[in-house]
Amino acid sequence: MLKHDFASHIQNLKSVTKPASAALGRYLWTCSIDNKDYWLKYHLPETDVQSEQDFIHEQLFYEEITHNKPAWLLPHNLIEIGAIPQLNHSLGRVLVLPNTDLWFGSLSHEADLTDVYHKIWSVLDKLAELYEFGWIHGDIKKEHFRKFEQNPYLIDFEKARLISSSDSRMDATPRYMAPELFRGECKDVQSDLYAFGIVLYEWLTQTRLEAWSYYEWAVLHCQNLTIQLPKQFMIFYPLLSGLLQKKRQNRFSNAAEAINCLKTV
């Protein structure tokens, strides 16, 4: 990706912004640059304070974490939006990321167990590195694990925070919320791992958990969630059990424990 004369390389620019996102000032576009597909992400200043702060936070995270050269960080650019006249905005920056696929996409009952094992292990390895750098993701969900050039990557760091942070803002997605978050406790590595457990559970079962309100999600996660895996994937039950324990003291305390459990499969 080129920073200089960026606009002249853009082709097939298309808005994919949802109306609800636009109301908060958040815009997304797809485009191609030198025959490769990209996403452009932007927030219109002075529209929604929290959403704007989240996007600024993500930009700062990219700038800080890039120095560590993490294996899970996609190639990216931050471009002043004024350099892209096609977008008709003058203030702020655009995050440019390559187009990617879901890492945890469709899964057949005949899937090779070695491939399934590799997909899980490789993501746990990336999460372990994130935690070693002192950060939690804070918004683990299926859509944030991406496949690019056959490798897994993480995206969307708007909710990322330092492990040492005492920030207790409740900005998690109920589908992936660990039980303690419903009680107002702070996010940490274990709440990340619980969310990852939900991602894996839905992937291995190729189902979606269902609830119709915040209260119903709380009841599901705090009381009713039970693990029922297809027979061919039961070898992953100990891993799921360790990730999805309702009480923190019974759950894996870090990614290394989950990896060690997976090694016993």
Rank of each mutant, 00 (worst) to 15 (best):
K3N: 13
H4L: 14
D5W: 15
F6L: 12
S8T: 14
S8R: 14
S8A: 11
Q11I: 01
L13H: 05
K14Q: 10
V16Q: 07
T17W: 04
A23T: 11
G25F: 02
Y27I: 00
T30R: 03
C31G: 08
S32Y: 01
S32R: 10
S32L: 04
N35R: 14
K36C: 08
D37V: 10
Y38T: 09
W39L: 15
W39M: 14
L40R: 03
K41S: 09
K41L: 11
Y42M: 05
H43Q: 13
P45T: 09
D48N: 13
F55G: 12
E58S: 03
L60P: 00
L60W: 00
I65H: 00
T66H: 06
K69F: 00
A71N: 12
W72Y: 05
L73R: 03
L74R: 02
L78T: 10
L78A: 01
L78W: 03
I79M: 04
I81T: 07
G82A: 05
A83Y: 08
P85C: 05
Q86P: 03
Q86K: 14
H89V: 00
S90N: 10
L91Q: 14
R93M: 10
R93D: 08
N99D: 09
F104V: 10
F104E: 00
L107T: 13
E110W: 03
E110V: 10
L113E: 15
D115V: 12
V116L: 09
K119Y: 07
W121R: 15
V123E: 02
L127E: 07
L130V: 14
G134K: 06
G134E: 04
I136F: 08
I136R: 07
H137Q: 11
I140G: 08
F145G: 10
K147C: 10
F148G: 07
Q150Y: 06
P152D: 09
P152A: 07
L154Y: 08
K159W: 03
R161A: 09
L162I: 08
S165N: 04
D167K: 01
S168A: 11
Y176G: 04
M177Y: 02
P179E: 01
P179Q: 00
C186A: 13
Q190L: 02
I198L: 06
L200W: 00
T207K: 05
T207N: 01
L209D: 06
L209N: 07
S213C: 07
Y214L: 15
W217K: 05
W217R: 06
Q223P: 00
N224M: 13
L225G: 05
L225M: 13
L229N: 07
I235V: 13
Y237Q: 14
Y237C: 07
P238S: 08
S241R: 08
L243P: 05
N250F: 07
N250Q: 11
N250Y: 11
A256G: 04
A256V: 14
A256L: 13
A258S: 01
L262T: 03
V265E: 02
V265T: 08
